[in-house]
Amino acid sequence: MKKLLLTVTAVAIGMTGVGLYASPETDQAAFVNYFTKKFPDTPKEDFVNGVYSIDAASREQWIEIEEFPPYELAIDAGEEEWNTAFANGKGYVDCFGEPGVRGNYPYWDESRKEVITLELAINECREANGEKPLKYKRGKIADISAYMAYASRGEPINVEIPNDEALAAYERGKEFYYRKRGQLNFSCFDCHGGGAGNLVRADKLSPAYGHTSHFPVYRSKWGGMGTLHRRFGGCNGQVRAKSFKAQGPEYRELEYFLTYMSNGLDYNGPGARK
């Protein structure tokens, strides 16, 4: 009986790939170790500042930009949205309680069996109150998200994986991250893991550790605000992969995995990036 048990266990371990056997906790520890080793001069908590945490030259420019942050208009617009009642008299406050709840997202909803993100929750609040849902990549959704992110600055990132189904979603997000895709054959980690700190033409690649903390983001390239899923879509397009729907299951689970990897860091949105 013991022999059979040992054999079965050995086979089970052998069958799972190396990357699948580890738990999320050991995954995260190894992830953090990878980046702190790669960038030993960067204090851990500073990774939330992306490329500016690993490149002194662009950091100078960024600090200047932050004196008159380009996302301020979005925060103001978002605050106005927050304070404007729906047609039925209710407001976002009735769904969320207060704006500073960014730290609750993303989370695994055990009854709905899916990942809930902040932007998804914003639209569900609207629809529950008879309002039309907003588009997910830019505009009003980014404004509201920016206001809520700003109100939540300093909250710790603490994504939980409460059960096996949540774990499966985490594993799907993880596989998405490390799989090469697109005609150009890149995985997310190719650029933001192994390639972090390298230059693509004149752009320095930011490390994945701390990646989702500062969204939504004012990106100079966009000349405006955008959400995390807008960036996901853009990245996929850049490697000539067909991008997925914003707030579809793929990007929500990717967000779930990626945010978990930054557990322990603090939310610092909204952000400004090149």
Partner: peptide
């Protein structure tokens, strides 16, 4: 190629 490789005659080369 300049995205990742330094090439003479090329400006702002990458270094992947």
């Amino acid at each position: 190629c300049l995205a990742c490789h330094m090439i003479a005659d090329g400006t702002l080369p990458g270094n992947q």
